[in-house]
Design a protein around this nucleic acid. Structure first.
Length: 343
RNA sequence: GGUGGGAUAUCCAAGUGGCUAAAGGAAGCAGACUGUAAAUCUGUCGAGGUUUCUCUUCGAGCGUUCGAAUCGCUCUCCCACCA
């Protein structure tokens, strides 16, 4: 988690953290994490943790920014360098963006790295299928992901020490029948839970349909995770379809860029305010009225605005605390709505 | 007192006769951000008008030229060095 300490995260009420196998694999390396006693110990986080398999990052190298692909947008960054070299049955060959060395991340290599990192929940290695790809490719990619997931499961069972659980991943892109097939595949195999991944379409409406379709065909009562989704409306929509957990860079990245999450009902439907805006220069109110986070209890919009204008690193830290608190609080409200049968 | 260098839009700074309302930064203003190569990226950025348009601008003034931020003269102010 960028711009925030684990102590601050705990204070905010966060219960679980997602970490990134791909980045830890390249730097500092899974062995270094293991030498530090595992990731929990290394970063001082005594609560649950999951790791992504690295699939998303590797395939973002081949298609520009996958976040853009998922949304059907053209990527605007990292487009010049082709770092994804080859996808074979064995795994994905790619060049390190750090030093140019060629690596192959296979299901076995990903699981081995995740074993060393030591998160409580790990993910099977899959191919994150992009948006700008035809049905035929999506189908073949899904089949390969299924084979990779089975290899992930076997490697996981081979290395199992009783402290980790593994999720399968539902692929299938924007095609309902493929999503159904993939959901059935994951349900029928011995995963602890399942995550919904890959392209979720070009619009929020399409994303809602795809998630609903995937959830509909899950044939068990295991936990379901929706990968990479974190706007409030999308979370609510996912929850209504039966999704249990989410992960997303949005709250923390937004924070570092000056975006503070707020109640849309009090802000013309907008989910955040841009604290950089000049209208906050003299605004001595807290970011979010009534918010109990460290930032809102102590500081004004005017002060945070000034910190951003002055490019103080504390600026991103304060808003990251606020946004993290805001999301935890939001999910607590969602939980109580479920408890009261209101959704 | 002498010699040399300089003065460009909010700031820094290119530009030495027409392609210059004037490169490039910064600041300012706004936008984007959904399994994090993002403390990043994009747009805008003299004043007006809906576009091809008009007006004002490169220290000040006068001049040369069809045409000047760019050439000449005078002045003002800064900087360096020598007395």
């Amino acid at each position: 988690m960028k711009a925030i300490t684990t102590a601050q995260l705990e204070a905010v009420g966060a219960e679980i953290m997602l970490s990134n196998t791909y980045h830890l694999y390249l730097q500092p390396g899974a062995d270094i994490v293991a030498e530090n006693g595992g990731l929990h110990k290394m970063i001082g986080w005594n609560k649950p943790m999951l790791t992504d398999s690295g699939g998303f990052q590797i395939f973002s190298l081949g298609h520009g920014c996958v976040a853009d692909e998922i949304k059907g947008r053209r990527s605007f960054a990292h487009t010049n360098r082709k770092l994804l070299l080859k996808i074979s049955e064995e795994g994905a060959y790619f060049k390190s963006y750090i030093d140019g060395h060629v690596h192959c991340l296979s299901p076995e290599a990903s699981i081995q790295a995740q074993r060393k990192i030591g998160a409580d929940i790990i993910l099977a290695f899959d191919e994150c299928t992009p948006f700008h790809v035809d049905r035929d490719y999506t189908a073949r990619s899904m089949d390969r992901s299924h084979r990779w997931e089975m290899r992930s499961l076997r490697e996981f069972e081979r290395l199992a020490n009783g402290t980790q659980a593994i999720y399968g991943i539902i692929q299938g892109g924007i095609y309902g029948d493929l999503r159904r097939e993939s959901a059935q595949f994951v349900s029928e195999n011995n995963f602890f839970g399942q995550a919904i991944g890959g392209s979720l379409g070009g619009t929020k409406e399409q994303m809602g349909e795809i998630v609903a379709c995937a959830c509909e065909h899950i044939k068990n009562v295991r936990p379901t995770h929706l990968l990479g989704i974190g706007h409030m409306g999308d979370i609510l929509s996912g929850v209504k379809n039966g999704v249990d957990t989410f992960d997303c860079v949005h709250p923390t990245r937004l924070a570092r860029h000056g975006g503070a999450l707020v109640d849309p009902e009090k802000n013309d439907g907008r989910e955040f305010i841009n604290i950089n805006n000049s209208r906050f220069t003299h605004d001595t109110q807290p970011i979010s009225d009534g918010c109990m986070c460290y930032c809102c209890r102590n500081f004004s919009r005017s002060y945070v605005h000034y910190l951003f204008k002055a490019k103080e690193s504390l600026s991103g830290q304060l808003l990251t605390i606020h946004n993290a608190h805001f999301m935890v609080n939001f999910m607590e409200r969602v939980c109580s709505l479920i408890a009261n049968s209101e959704i």
